[in-house]
Design a protein around this nucleic acid. Structure first.
Lengths: 229, 229
DNA sequence: GATTCAATTATTGTCAACAATTGTTGTCGA
DNA sequence: TCGACAACAATTGTTGACAATAATTGAATC
């Protein structure tokens, strides 16, 4: 009994999440300008709080703050893109390695369930869900590996990856299909750390190799439509 | 011709750095309360900007923001401490591995020079410098490895490590002596990735094993003395 | 017609005052 | 003497207004 009342004031965290999601799910394209007042109107919050949130988003590399100009959704360069994947391999290979040693049956079940959901979204052609779940799979691995820190670091990297994909991915290639995720789960289940590490490496390399340096589409729809959900 | 004039207004970045350093170099102890107005006075800045800086520090885990209560220097639990070291091993092992493949003679020279400086501070009994340089060594490795992202992630982890040491390190054991750092440089110079990784692993494990779960000294001097340098 | 420069407008950066919250102190009663 | 309660003080949270800065428009000149 709090979620009604027309429109309650959103907390900083909620505003952050909304914008974060909108970017990570590629609803707001790279390069889009984010005006403070505009956001303040949308969330019925003061500019000061929006400002705080933007600062945080900038710290995660999702937006870029230009002094006296404002906030723009980041346009990662191809070098930054490769760096993101390097960092992801570093972290995620270690995570699956650890998972093989520590995961319990409940964890395995959660992974399987998740891949099933991914497969379903994929079959239904639900692209938005597919993208979201694909990122969530990697976050689930981090969560199960019980490293709070690496999980939070990876969270940022995954969202940046979405941004990179929005810019550089060839349009006909879908995200990562659920099959590679299934392979990862399989080797974790078998507790084969060597293989799990290799499969994860392959998976991330695969995504990276799909990058296309030419295309650079900009989406940029009206923010109001997206964020006021 | 700008550093005089009584006291120029410090930029946000500078304020952040000053506090960051004060914490990382263990001049401000864990648990110390950071009042906004107090800091505003010290830096002759408005509370709004201090607030912004505190938010950023909180995001890096250096301070903890309690709603309606204020900012406190974080007191990492022993579990968080172990997590930090796990994350550091993950990142730094990968960094030295890469360094073995990519470093040039100029980079090697910088590493050697740095270790020399460390050794000097160590011999002179200059504890403050020793602590600072010890952290800087790890940051130098990150910088030379040319991964912007891992470098910035490691930066946070190093500062958290300082905090952890301030809380849990047995008092007579010094930081990490320069010898282990020298060993790391040596194996990098030899481009022996296997060994470099092992030495780095050992080095971090060594530090972690020195942690003492009992002691929990709180320093907490007067902030004014520290930050107004 | 194109270019430079000035005036305008829109947007961000900064600040100081006000509101809300929390911790504390002092008082009253058992 | 101890505990509960109420007024107080100290600190954070929020807001709105104002100043500084950068983009834009329009006019004048070549």
């Amino acid at each position: 009994m709090d979620a009604e009342a027309g429109k309650r004031h959103a907390t900083d965290q909620e505003i952050y999440e909304k914008i974060w999601n909108a970017i990570a799910e590629r609803q707001i394209g790279p390069g889009t300008r984010l005006k403070e007042e505009q956001l303040a109107d949308i969330f019925t919050a003061s500019r000061a709080r929006i400002r705080q949130v933007l600062q945080n988003l900038a710290r995660d590399g999702l937006i870029t703050l230009v002094p006296n100009r404002g906030a723009f959704v980041s346009k990662p360069s191809i070098e930054e893109a490769r760096d993101v994947f390097f960092a992801r391999r570093t972290i995620e290979e270690r995570l699956v390695e650890r998972l093989c040693a520590t995961i319990g049956s409940a964890g395995i079940e959660r992974l399987r369930q998740h891949v099933d959901n991914e497969r379903k979204a994929h079959q239904d052609g639900d692209v938005a869900s597919a993208i979201r779940l694909s990122g969530a799979f990697h976050m689930l691995i981090a969560e199960l590996a019980q490293s709070q820190i690496l999980a939070s670091l990876l969270r940022d990297l995954v969202s940046r990856t979405s941004l990179i994909m929005a810019m550089y991915q060839q349009k006909d290639v879908l995200n990562c299909g659920p099959d590679e995720h299934a392979a990862i789960v399989e080797s974790i289940t078998a507790r084969d750390a060597r293989k799990a590490l290799a499969v994860m490496h392959h998976h991330l390399a695969h995504i990276e190799n799909q990058l296309d340096l030419e295309s650079e589409r900009v989406v940029s729809r009206d923010l109001e439509d997206i964020l006021s959900l």
